[in-house]
Design a protein around this nucleic acid. Structure first.
Lengths: 215, 215, 215, 215
DNA sequence: TATGAATGAGCCTTCATTCAT
DNA sequence: TATGAATGAAGGCTCATTCAT
């Protein structure tokens, strides 16, 4: 699936659309899709309310574009880091990937999109499909690949790579969403992000290590 | 815990409040707090719009009550099942608990509340606090206790019980929310709920099993 | 014009209608016709909301009845006092009448009706007509008679009795409405009711006294 | 007045608040604060309902502004006329002032505000204070000054200037409110405004004239 | 006769969207 | 391209009125 680049977004030299998208992401994240007001987005973007309609046909489409655009730009920013190095062991590949992904996830923009995705995406099936194709499936494929390689190399026990990738995703996303807000973290006695990562990594690697004599 | 029933609502041994709560849960789940219309809730409950205001002072308070009431009644329904049997091994206790919890989580009403909780709870700090105290903390304490006992008995390796409970929660909740809708499950090739449970359980128990010679 | 005595008000031994009328007068006075709620009137009367409808067909008619009934009962209460004694001088008759009227006016129930009359009566032409016939015209006729007699007897200069009655009414009603609320009185430095009366009386009698050699 | 939608949009933005205030005064006067509907005000102003909220935060504040604005603009319009000429006798000053005030009072806008003031002001203490300071006190001070000067010059008998100013106000306001509506005037046999003024003036001057030998 | 739960029309207010400038 | 005043449909909430008990 290709990202739909409408005429508005093709006007590269202009910064207007990006200003609006940034402002919209912030306001959508703070207020949710319904409570976010175009007035606030415009004020935050430093433009007039009507200007938004020069670039986006309506609020829902602006929301779609915010999610699409943020996902894409975030993925682009992360692309280099998330590439596995073929020489590493599968364990190291997985650790490296998880580490990068943890960093990626904890970015405010990423978390914002995740929150929106969870809360609003069921109302936008086409956007859900896009998210699935562009984000979920590649990530799962990538992680599945690392795990499959680890199984082949005897580093991991024989698990279902796809199911494992799903479980790792659940672990990391759940922690990023819940425990990276200081007040939530404090109330359940959660540790700093680095410690959370260590705990998740430790849990995952133990879950995957071969049984005695399995290698 | 006793649900606070003020004088206005204590009035009748009537089904009205429950009808309204049920309808509201359904509509809130489908539409979210903002898009849910009192008209729809009323129609679904088979009452007039004004009737809602005989029992709940406004839409937000109705939402609060839906979450509170559903959580409480769901917890009560689950209370018996979730009790651990002291004679079992920690592994069996954990499996039993996870199984019951998985059943509990996948209930439509529970999932609905979870979706609402994730999407809207940050706007209701007092409700978030209630949820934390009534749901999250007891569950974490219970699971932590099982894990600590397992460590003592040598069934589990030395992990941080609280961190592990958190991680298990992330795994289960994530899977319940994402893969129990048929279309989502299909699109990522996820299996039936029973298989999902087996996979999660397998993952968790392997993550906790002692290293060679650790026991 | 005869006071319409509908079936409800004819049920003499029952106190319900009177309780409701009293409560309604109080709430109408405090809130005005539109802001007064039947709920409050019912609570104040110690009856259920529906009970009001057993005696009055609707809120407007209740209002009408409050005004009619209060005027009538107030007038009946004042009737004896307001009768002129034929032996007195016109000056004494006028003073006596003004004194009684000042007492009558300053009664909370009378003031309440006056406030309602000024604020709402233009919406109830039939009620305005009733008020005119039952209250204004008799009072004017009575005062005009005293003044005419005073002119004949040489106690007053030759004024238009009707115009004078009007002016006296304006003076007394204006002062009763504005300066009998403590906070209003204080803010304009008005005196106690007795002093106000003395000032009004003094003003009126000087306005009416014959010029030198006029008698 | 209905304008085609296009030309309505094109009107100078400066006129909007005034159009709305004028329409609001008319509707508030006809219906009272509670029965006045924003829809009617908007239609009368030739704007959409939402436009009102561009200039006034809500209905109550619109009401406040109507009273404030109308009082202020009416006072400004009357300011020049109401200035006393120092060369005149106190009697002429008072007559001149009463005449101007009578003209001022009988203006529809002034009467409308007076009706609103009497009927609704007790619900708006801050507005009542404003009215007292801006309208009542200056007027009373001005009239008191004329009367005090008249007493010094021997034109008036020794009265309490403040009490007299109050009484004059009651006379004039009462007559303006009650007898300037044709139907009310007719029903009590009141004369034309000019005659009413002559009668009030005559009454007042006689009330103030010195007794024999007092000068 | 008395109750008070239930009704639903009515209205204020919000805010996404339009359009004249 | 940019503006922001103007629009008007939508929806939460109130409360007079009804009616089953």
């Amino acid at each position: 699936m290709t990202l739909p680049l409408d005429s508005a977004r093709r006007r590269a030299p202009d910064e207007r659309p990006q200003q609006i998208l940034d402002a919209a992401l912030a306001v959508f994240d703070e207020e949710g899709l319904d409570r976010a007001r175009l007035d606030d987005i415009a004020r935050r973007a430093g433009v007039a309310k009507g200007t938004i309609y020069l670039y986006f046909p309506n609020k829902e489409e602006l929301f779609r574009e915010v999610v699409r655009h943020t996902i894409v730009s975030r993925l682009e920013a992360a692309r280099g880091k998330l590439a596995a190095e073929p020489d590493l062991s599968a364990v190291d590949q997985l650790c490296s990937y998880m580490h990068d992904w943890w960093e990626f996830l904890r970015t405010p923009a990423t978390l914002a999109v995740y929150r929106l995705v969870i809360g609003e995406l069921h109302r936008f099936p086409e956007l859900a499909a896009f998210y699935l194709e562009e984000v979920v499936k590649p990530a799962r494929a990538f992680v599945s690949g690392i795990i499959a390689r680890g199984i082949e190399r005897g580093e991991f026990r024989r698990v279902d790579p796809a199911a494992t990738a799903r479980t790792l995703a659940a672990m990391f996303v759940g922690h990023a969403l819940w425990y990276c807000k200081p007040e939530m973290a404090r109330s359940v006695g959660a540790e700093a992000p680095e410690q959370l990562f260590q705990q998740l990594c430790d849990f995952a690697l133990h879950a995957l290590r071969p049984a005695v004599g399995e290698a």
